[in-house]
C-alpha cells in the first residue's frame, strides 16, 4: 500500500465515528422531521401514524395561536436586535476609552452570560413583580407609579427583552470591543490631525470600520431571536394571554404538552423557513449594496 493510499484509509477510519453520529443524530432527524410534518402521529396510540399530506401546514396557517406566536417572536426580534446593537456598541466604545480597568469591566459585563436561563428568569421574575418586586419598590420609593412589567400585554415583551439584554449583551460588547481595538491608531490620529471632531471621527472612521462586526452581530442576534424560548418560558410562561409565547414555545407545547408531534414538526419547519428567508434576504441586500 502506498503512503497516499494509507493516508486515505486512515483518514476514512478517523472520519467514520463522527459520520456515524452525524448520520444518526443529524441526517436521520431531518428526514424524520420532514416525515412527521406530513403525518398525524399519536405516540399514545402505540405510535400509529396516519398520512395527512400538507394538512399540518395548512392547519398552522389557519391557527390563531400560530400567528400570535409569530407575532410575539417578531416583536421580540424587532426590540432585541437594535437594543443589542446600540447598547453593545455603546458599552464597547465606553470600555475602549477607559484608561484603567478595561479588562475588569469586560469581565463584569460578560459575567451575566454565565448564568443559566432558569436562574436568570426566576431572579428577574422577582425584580419585575408588580406588587412585591424590586423594581416597582424602587420606583414607588422614588415617588413614581409602579410599572406593570409582566402583567400588561404590551409591557411584557419589552420586559423580556430587558432581561435578555442584561443576560446576553456582554458577548456583543466583547466582540465589538475587540474590533475597536484592532482599528489602527494611525487612522484615528490622522483624522484628529485633520481637525475632525470626536463625533465626526466616530461617524466617518470608526463606524465604517466596525461595519463587518456589526453586521455579524445583527445577523446572529436576529437568528437567535427567532429561537427565543427559555426567557419567556420561565419569566412569564408565555403570558399574559400569550403575548410573549414565541414560536419555539408554541412548538414545544404543541408537541410535548398537546401530544401533537406532526403538527409540532410542521411548526418547526415553518420556523426554519422564516430563518432561512431572513438569511437569503439579508445576503441579497448585501449583494445589492456591494454592487452599488
Amino acid at each position: 500500500m502506498t503512503a497516499r493510499a494509507k493516508q486515505q484509509v486512515t483518514g476514512w477510519i478517523l472520519l467514520l465515528p463522527y459520520l456515524a453520529f452525524f448520520a444518526i443524530f443529524v441526517v436521520v432527524p431531518v428526514i424524520v422531521s420532514g416525515w412527521l410534518s406530513v403525518v398525524q402521529l399519536d405516540l399514545a396510540n402505540a405510535g400509529a401514524s396516519k398520512f395527512v399530506g400538507l394538512q399540518n401546514y395548512s392547519d398552522a396557517l389557519k391557527d390563531n395561536f400560530f400567528w400570535m406566536a409569530t407575532q410575539a417572536t417578531g416583536k421580540y426580534a424587532i426590540l432585541m436586535v437594535p437594543s443589542v446593537l446600540i447598547v453593545g456598541t455603546a458599552m464597547a466604545l465606553g470600555m475602549n476609552s477607559m484608561k484603567r480597568g478595561r479588562d475588569m469591566a469586560r469581565t463584569l459585563i460578560y459575567l451575566p452570560s454565565m448564568l443559566n436561563v432558569a436562574a436568570t428568569g426566576i431572579l428577574w421574575q422577582w425584580f419585575f413583580n408588580n406588587e412585591f418586586g424590586l423594581f416597582n419598590y424602587g420606583i414607588r420609593q422614588a415617588g413614581g407609579q409602579g410599572v406593570p412589567w409582566l402583567t400588561d400585554a404590551n409591557m411584557a415583551m419589552p420586559s423580556v427583552v430587558l432581561m435578555s439584554l442584561w443576560w446576553t449583551v456582554g458577548g456583543t460588547s466583547v466582540i465589538v470591543l475587540t474590533a475597536l481595538q484592532q482599528i489602527p491608531k494611525v487612522f484615528l490620529e490622522a483624522a484628529a490631525l485633520d481637525g475632525a471632531r470626536n463625533n465626526q471621527i466616530f461617524g466617518r472612521v470608526t463606524l465604517p470600520l466596525l461595519k463587518p462586526v456589526l453586521l455579524f452581530v445583527f445577523v446572529t442576534t436576529t437568528i437567535t431571536s427567532f429561537q427565543m424560548f427559555g426567557q419567556a418560558m420561565i419569566l412569564t410562561g408565555g403570558g399574559p394571554t400569550f403575548a410573549t409565547r414565541g414560536l419555539v414555545q408554541f412548538m414545544f407545547e404543541t408537541a410535548f404538552n398537546g401530544y401533537r408531534f406532526g403538527y409540532g414538526a410542521a411548526i418547526s419547519w415553518l420556523l426554519f423557513a422564516m430563518i432561512a428567508g431572513f438569511s437569503v434576504l439579508q445576503a441579497q441586500v448585501l449583494k445589492v449594496r456591494e454592487a452599488k
Binding site: 431531518v30 402521529l41 405516540l43 437568528i223 419555539v248 414545544f252 408531534f261 419547519w269 430563518i275
Partner: peptide, 18 residues
C-alpha cells in the same frame, strides 16, 4: 446543516431516542 435551527431537531430526536 449548521444553518438548521436546533429546535427543529427536538421533536424527531425525541422520537428517535425513544
Amino acid at each position: 446543516t449548521m444553518m438548521i435551527p436546533a429546535q427543529l431537531f427536538l421533536i424527531p430526536l425525541y422520537v428517535i431516542l425513544r
